[in-house]
Amino acid sequence: MSINATLIIQMVVFFAVIWITMKYIWPVILGAMQEREQKIADGLAAGDRAEKELERAKAKVDTLIIEAKEQAGQIKEQANQVANKVKDQAKSEALAEKERQMTAAEAEIEQQVNRAREQLRQQVSTLAVAGAEKLISKEIDAQKHAQLLDELIAEI
C-alpha cells in the first residue's frame, strides 16, 4: 500500500480515456441526441401548425356554411315573393279576363235577346194580323182592330 509508479500510469490512462471520450464518443452520441431532439421538436411544431390550420379551415367552413344558409334563405324568400307576385298577377289578370269575357257575353246575350225579341214581335204581329185576317176576314173594322192589335203587340 505505497505510492508508486502505478499512479503515473493511471494518470496517463486517465487523460487518454478523457481525450478519446472527448474526441470520439461524446460529440457523436450527443450530436445524434440533439439531432433527434430537433427532429422531434420540428415534428411537434409541424403538428401544432397543422392543428391550427385545421381549426382555421374549420372556422372558415363554418362561416361559409352560415353564409350559404343565409343566402339560401334570402333566395328562397325572394323566390317566394316572386312566386306570390306572379300568382297574384295571374289571379288578377284571370279575374279581369273573366270579368271582361263575362260582360262581353252578357252584352252578346242581351243583343241576341233583343234581336230575337224584335223578330218575334214582328213575326207575332204579322202572324196575329194574318190570323186575325183569316179569322175575321169578312167583317173587319180594320181601324177598330188595329188598336186592339197594337195593344196585343205591346203586350208581347
Binding site: 487518454a16 470520439y24 457523436v28 445524434a32
Partner: peptide, 23 residues
C-alpha cells in the same frame, strides 16, 4: 484491471457512437 475496464468502457461507448442514429 484499470486499463481493461477503460478499454471495455471505450469500446462499448465507441461501438454505440459509431452506430448512433438520430432516428
Amino acid at each position: 484491471y484499470t486499463i481493461l475496464l477503460a478499454v471495455i468502457y471505450l469500446l462499448f461507448f465507441r461501438s454505440v457512437a459509431k452506430k448512433a442514429t438520430a432516428g
